[in-house]
Amino acid sequence: MKNKTSAERSRSISEGWVETTLGKVIKIIGGGTPKTSVPEYWNGEIPWLSVVDFNDDNRWVSSTEKTITSLGLEKSSTKLLNKGDIIISARGTVGAMAQLKREMTFNQSCYGIRNIENLSEIDFIFYLLKFSLKQINQNTYGAVFDTITTKTFDYININLPPRPEQKAIANVLTAFDDKIENLRAQNDTLEQTAQTIFNEWFGKYQLEDELPEGWRVGKLSDLLDIKYGKDHKHLQDGDYPLYGSGGIMRYVEKPLYKKESILIPRKGTLTNLFYLNQPFWSVDTMFYSKIKNPIQGRFIYLFLKSIDLSAMNVGSAVPSLTTNVLNQIPLIIPENNIMNEFNNIISSFYTKINFNISQIQSLSKTRDTLLSKLMSGELRVKL
């Protein structure tokens, strides 16, 4: 790869690149929702996507919170997307996107995106969409919810390289995403191992049991101060990770909190928790927290992962948790020596996890820098 001057860049666009619009190089597919009042349409073998399943920085989506039956697919307006197709949210949280690891259906708040054979490559289209998200978000409408329509893509001007160059560009960027995916898989394994150790040490005790000397039953509020996250629309891009229910959404100019913290979902998917030991921003659909005694942080986090927070839902249309509900959660608190010993064992796992997280952030920033340069033609891939 080599850098080009502005003049060279202009010539390179005319040498095989085509000026067009995004809408002309993709197929747009609409989704739908089977009637929720018909049980026979739900809990089948077919994954059914909504934005909660892919609202993060992961390239791939392989599973969904909800599934439908073949009858639900037949009797509704939802469509079956192919493996490799792209899903993008079109209403509310506009621009969340991922590629499908398998065939999936999806709701009407999203669009399925497919390449046009002999014109565009699907992996390139994924990165082209990422590159075009700012333009897409500038072409939303709606009084209550930001919304994009099929016409939005016709307003997004692009420069389309020949298909061999599309493949080469996608391969460069995919190499970064593959490394990121491997690091995330390592972290998942480390998290599972830490959870197993927690269960072996503390899972055998019940609240009503006679506890070892020095142990006691308390409430979550004894160990944790839970605070509300904040809206991030006013923040410029920067170096600090901004977390939502799916993980890192973007990087912003300043942190909301600089100390170790446990992030707990407040609305939507109530299962994703995060333990952070770096400055961060948390969106308003997440709680962040002040850990009263740092030695107890990992213990609290693994305890919360061991219980079913979704069973504590107090919402109606949207699943929700409140500080009052969380503060009152009962738990067994071991005596300090046991807590210290447990923390010493678990810390090595999280040292590796944190190192991997820093690697992921570095790779993500480099990928995004390359994305801009490759899509604009400032940097060309040598074929």
Rank of each mutant, 00 (worst) to 15 (best):
residue 113 I to K: 02
residue 99 Q to L: 09
residue 114 R to N: 08
residue 79 K to H: 12
residue 80 L to M: 15
residue 68 I to S: 02
residue 53 D to R: 01
residue 54 F to K: 03
residue 167 K to M: 14
residue 117 E to R: 09
residue 53 D to S: 07
residue 93 T to Y: 06
residue 169 I to D: 10
residue 148 I to T: 06
residue 166 Q to E: 12
residue 116 I to N: 04
residue 128 L to E: 12
residue 83 K to C: 12
residue 132 S to F: 08
residue 96 A to E: 04
residue 99 Q to S: 13
residue 48 W to Y: 08
residue 152 T to D: 04
residue 104 M to K: 02
residue 47 P to K: 07
residue 95 G to I: 00
residue 111 Y to S: 03
residue 66 K to I: 02
residue 156 I to E: 02
residue 154 D to P: 01
residue 52 V to G: 10
residue 121 E to A: 10
residue 151 K to I: 08
residue 56 D to R: 07
residue 117 E to V: 10
residue 157 N to V: 12
residue 134 K to R: 11
residue 82 N to C: 08
residue 64 T to I: 08
residue 111 Y to G: 01
residue 85 D to Y: 07
residue 99 Q to I: 09
residue 164 P to R: 05
residue 163 R to T: 15
residue 99 Q to P: 01
residue 111 Y to A: 03
residue 91 R to T: 15
residue 159 N to R: 13
residue 89 S to Q: 06
residue 110 C to V: 04
residue 134 K to D: 13
residue 57 D to G: 13
residue 152 T to S: 01
residue 92 G to H: 11
residue 113 I to A: 02
residue 49 L to C: 07
residue 74 E to S: 13
residue 86 I to L: 09
residue 146 D to C: 07
residue 137 N to I: 09
residue 65 E to D: 10
residue 129 L to V: 07
residue 63 S to N: 11
residue 137 N to H: 02
residue 123 D to A: 11
residue 64 T to A: 14
residue 87 I to H: 02
residue 117 E to A: 11
residue 80 L to A: 05
residue 151 K to V: 11
residue 145 F to L: 14
residue 122 I to S: 14
residue 115 N to P: 10
residue 109 S to W: 00
residue 73 L to A: 11
residue 142 G to F: 02
residue 102 R to Y: 09
residue 119 L to A: 10
residue 115 N to Y: 12
residue 66 K to A: 10
residue 67 T to Y: 06
residue 143 A to H: 00
residue 169 I to Q: 04
residue 59 R to P: 00
residue 87 I to D: 00
residue 168 A to K: 14
residue 167 K to H: 09
residue 99 Q to R: 15
residue 107 N to R: 04
residue 114 R to Y: 02
residue 80 L to W: 07
residue 52 V to I: 15
residue 98 A to Q: 01
residue 119 L to S: 05
residue 78 T to D: 07
residue 63 S to P: 01
residue 140 T to S: 00
residue 82 N to A: 11
residue 165 E to F: 05
residue 77 S to T: 10
residue 118 N to T: 00
residue 76 S to Q: 03
residue 140 T to I: 13
residue 130 K to I: 06
residue 92 G to F: 12
residue 73 L to D: 07
residue 104 M to W: 06
residue 51 V to T: 15
residue 105 T to Y: 06
residue 49 L to P: 04
residue 66 K to N: 14
residue 87 I to K: 01
residue 143 A to I: 06
residue 133 L to K: 11
residue 139 N to Q: 12
residue 167 K to W: 02
residue 147 T to N: 15
residue 77 S to H: 06
residue 154 D to V: 09
residue 106 F to M: 08
residue 152 T to I: 01
residue 87 I to M: 05
residue 148 I to S: 05
residue 118 N to E: 14
residue 71 L to Q: 13
residue 126 F to G: 04
residue 65 E to C: 03
residue 114 R to I: 06
residue 54 F to L: 05
residue 125 I to P: 02
residue 160 L to C: 08
residue 126 F to A: 06
residue 97 M to E: 03
residue 156 I to L: 07
residue 85 D to W: 07
residue 76 S to D: 05
residue 94 V to T: 04
residue 72 G to Y: 03
residue 55 N to Y: 12
residue 48 W to F: 05
residue 143 A to G: 13
residue 155 Y to V: 09
residue 93 T to G: 02
residue 51 V to Q: 08
residue 59 R to D: 02
residue 137 N to F: 04
residue 62 S to G: 09
residue 48 W to Q: 07
residue 135 Q to F: 00
residue 67 T to F: 08
residue 115 N to E: 15
residue 76 S to W: 10
residue 52 V to A: 15
